[in-house]
Amino acid sequence: MAQVKTRRSRNGARLPNDRGIPQYMGENIEKDLEEVSLRAGGTMRNRILVAAIALFAERGYENLNMRTLASWVGLKAPTLYNYFPSKEALLVGAIDQGMDDFFGYILDGIEAVPREQRLFEIVHRHAGYKLRHRAIARANDRLIDPQFARMFLPEEAARDFGSRMARYRHQVEDLVGDHIPRDGAVSTKVVTLAILSQCDRIAYWYTPKGNMTEEQALAQITILTRRMLHDIPREARSG
């Protein structure tokens, strides 16, 4: 049997072999492809965008093979251009859909939750999204990284995506301000960033093969959040 030659990027990094089964970082993402694309409408365009999130993140913008993307979604490569006129348009659309799905999952109907419980509901949904869609969530994280945006996104798109992230942070920070002194030793901004960071990181440390269920893992995040908000030392509260 002929040995398969290792493909490498321009900077020498080893690229994954093309596959028929959608994967990201060695993890099958067929379930994520179906669930996320169905929430967005279930069209072929949605499926292409979700698959593109994983491929752009894993292979890099310059190394994306359009034939590989086409095979993931059951199309021929030229057909992709019926949906997107360029690879840049595909990248912008993929990030946009990733953000729509993430923020929709967290914020849809959130105003109906009582104000005093709203922050904890957002934390539960945010961490829950990252936990239940671990592979896609990690891929999304790579695409919204500021360095990636500077290198590959049009300036207007990069500004728009940055503004969407900032609006979400400010919304959470406003709720954090209901629970800790705004002029305390620990600022609401720092507490907000710590809360969001622990929600994001669950996509990296949680594994279904471990000894913790999804609900137990989410409960841990809620406990940590409550401790950050309520277990601040008395001297820190008084400033």
Rank of each mutant, 00 (worst) to 15 (best):
Q216R: 10
T207C: 11
R47P: 00
R39F: 11
F161N: 04
N11Y: 05
A40L: 15
H126A: 14
W72M: 01
Y83K: 00
G104V: 07
A127C: 02
A166E: 12
Y81D: 01
D96C: 04
A57D: 07
A166I: 10
Y105A: 14
G74W: 00
A236E: 09
R182M: 10
Y204N: 08
E215W: 02
M228K: 08
Q216F: 01
A2Y: 05
H170D: 14
L175C: 06
R159C: 11
R234K: 12
Q97M: 15
G20P: 05
F84A: 00
R159A: 14
R19K: 11
A54W: 03
S71A: 12
L90F: 02
I195Y: 06
D32T: 03
F84T: 01
S197L: 13
G104L: 06
D108Y: 08
T79C: 01
A137D: 02
R164H: 04
L107H: 04
E116P: 10
A127P: 01
L91H: 04
R45F: 00
A139V: 07
A112R: 10
I180W: 05
E62I: 12
Q97V: 14
A137C: 08
M212Q: 11
M228T: 04
N28Y: 05
H126C: 11
Y206H: 12
F161C: 04
M99D: 08
R39M: 14
S197W: 07
T225R: 04
V191R: 08
K5M: 14
L119W: 08
R164M: 08
Y81Q: 00
L131E: 04
G26L: 09
A70N: 02
A185P: 02
E156G: 05
I202V: 15
L119N: 11
F120I: 15
P16L: 09
M151C: 10
T43H: 00
R237I: 15
G26V: 09
Y168D: 06
L80Y: 00
L90R: 04
L91W: 01
E62R: 12
R138G: 10
D141E: 13
A2Q: 09
E235A: 12
Y105Q: 10
K87R: 11
I29Y: 01
A57Y: 03
I110G: 07
I221W: 01
H170P: 02
I53S: 04
I53D: 05
N11M: 09
I106G: 09
